[in-house]
Design a protein around this nucleic acid. Structure first.
Length: 166
DNA sequence: TACTGGATTCACT
DNA sequence: GTGAATCCAGTAA
């Protein structure tokens, strides 16, 4: 099982998002397959639309962790991609209590203290050679028809169960 | 300094 | 389907 290189993330956000489906997210000792992601580029709905102290990491890095706090209750885990800017929200993984972005962070104890970490430390993305079938939602978002975000799901859940790695 | 609204979740109807 | 919980980043002044 090999760890994805930093350069894997130095590509178009949507391409990376698609390829992340079926890969394995490791946080501390927990490993689970990535089931659902969302790709954010220069989107009106995205923090990447303006460069601020918070969103700076999306402009300056790739292969880094971007965590933000939302609705006063939840954190969301992202991985930065090419410096255009962009990031990929990890929405769900194949692990109990990780069926949504807020729940995932709560279950894995991910908070803003993890913001800015480079992949390879607490967080790793691994490739075990599994190739997932992918379902794509076209350009989610309705505000002013200017959204450029895509959501990708794994299609073959039954295969994931057979290839469960935890 | 004050205000506004959000990349969510869950309980309730 | 709807609304509440909750707090912080961003923005305007």
């Amino acid at each position: 099982m090999k760890q994805l290189s930093k350069e894997f993330f130095n590509r178009d956000t949507v391409v990376v998002a698609k390829e992340l489906i079926g890969k394995i997210l490791q946080v501390d000792n927990i490993r689970a397959r990535i089931l659902e992601v969302e790709a954010y580029k220069e989107d009106l709905a995205s923090h990447a639309r303006t460069k601020t102290p918070r969103s700076k990491i999306m402009f300056d890095t790739h292969g880094h962790i971007y965590v933000y706090f939302i609705y006063g209750m939840y954190h969301c885990l992202n991985i930065t991609t090419d410096s255009k800017p962009g990031a990929i929200l990890i929405r769900a993984i194949d692990y109990p209590g990780c069926s949504g972005p807020g729940k995932l962070c709560k279950t894995l104890n991910i908070t803003r203290k993890d913001n800015g970490l480079e992949l390879g430390g607490r967080f790793k993305i691994l490739d075990d050679g599994f190739i997932a079938k992918i379902k794509k939602s076209e350009r989610i978002g309705i505000k002013e028809d200017k959204h450029l975000l895509w959501r990708f799901y794994i299609e073959d859940y039954s295969v994931v169960n057979q290839k469960r790695i935890i």
